[in-house]
Amino acid sequence: METFTGAEVLRYTAFSSHPSGGNPAGVVLDAAGLDDTALLAIAAEVGYSETAFLTSPPEGLGGEPGRAFTARYFSPLAEVPFCGHATVAAAVALAERIGPGDLVFATPAGTVPVTVTTDASGTLRATLTSVEPRIEPVSGEDVTEALASLGWDPADLDPALPPRIAFAGARHLVLAAATRARLAALDYAFEPLAAFMRRLDLTTLQLVWRESGSVFHVRDPFPVGGVVEDPATGAAAAAFGAYARELGLVPDDARLTLHQGDDLGRPGILDVELRAGDPRVRVGGAAARLAAG
């Protein structure tokens, strides 16, 4: 545990049961009394793509007493409306203190229920339920600009997975690579892509390659947060699940496996569940405590 600006900061990696995998996040379980300037300063000093800050819940949120919270998320540069991996990290951190079970987070994007369970190996796993998602078209001109910033050609795209903007708490542009090699060779223009993303209010680009009907490999550039790439992105995974359902790529009831972080040497696995009759998307994974510093 570390202390920044009077706040105790925990470090966890999400979507991996091993500290060397997944996406690291900072977690502050009691951020009461910290203003926005302090929250941003702490997130910048922690240095991860996001840090989650928890405080008492708003009146009327619901949930069991002591298991409902307000959650806010800050990158080193700005607040983001929702962050999946920091939600999983915070939920597991809470479960280590108050036990597994159901939690409720009031986030800037909406109410996010989270369930923490213990698997057969004793590993804690958290599954969040997204806010109601939506899918939006994206213009050809915007796709062209995004490809130029990435250094991709139109022929690098998989025509079976057309570009869309997907939202499940935050906005992501989904671009599908035609080959695994194209996805692996990610080397983009940081500032031009950041400017493009700010113009469209995007949190990340969700770059995907389809291995099979239910298995995908993904990468998420995050220059608007001051980070070249996010190693495992729960909010984008939820958005992608909604995208896959909207385009008829998967059945109404489906379980998808997203592999992320392999190209960064931090492999993680994100489990995505779609349920017929429920527009929301469930994203789950393990989390592991990291050493301070």
Rank of each mutant, 00 (worst) to 15 (best):
V174Y: 00
A244G: 08
R280H: 11
P57R: 00
S121A: 15
T37N: 14
E8H: 15
H172A: 04
H259Q: 08
L264E: 02
V227E: 04
L249F: 11
A160I: 11
V104G: 00
F222T: 02
G60K: 07
T5F: 15
A178H: 07
L183T: 00
T5G: 09
P100E: 06
A239E: 00
L34R: 05
V281A: 02
S56Y: 10
R182D: 01
A32Q: 15
G151I: 10
L205P: 00
A91L: 12
A237T: 05
V9M: 04
Y188I: 03
F15N: 00
G66N: 11
I98Q: 13
T257P: 02
T118D: 11
G47K: 12
G60T: 12
A38I: 13
A239M: 08
R67E: 07
R125T: 14
T111W: 06
F4D: 03
S20I: 15
L247D: 03
A109S: 13
E59L: 10
P58F: 14
R198D: 15
F74Y: 15
A90L: 05
L258T: 01
F105K: 01
H217W: 07
R255G: 07
A276P: 14
Y73L: 09
A86P: 06
H259G: 04
V114I: 09
A189N: 09
V143H: 01
A178Q: 09
I165D: 01
R280L: 07
D119M: 06
R164D: 04
S214R: 13
E132I: 14
A32N: 13
F222E: 01
D36C: 09
T117M: 11
G241H: 01
H18A: 15
L124P: 00
N23L: 13
G225V: 05
L247Y: 04
A120S: 15
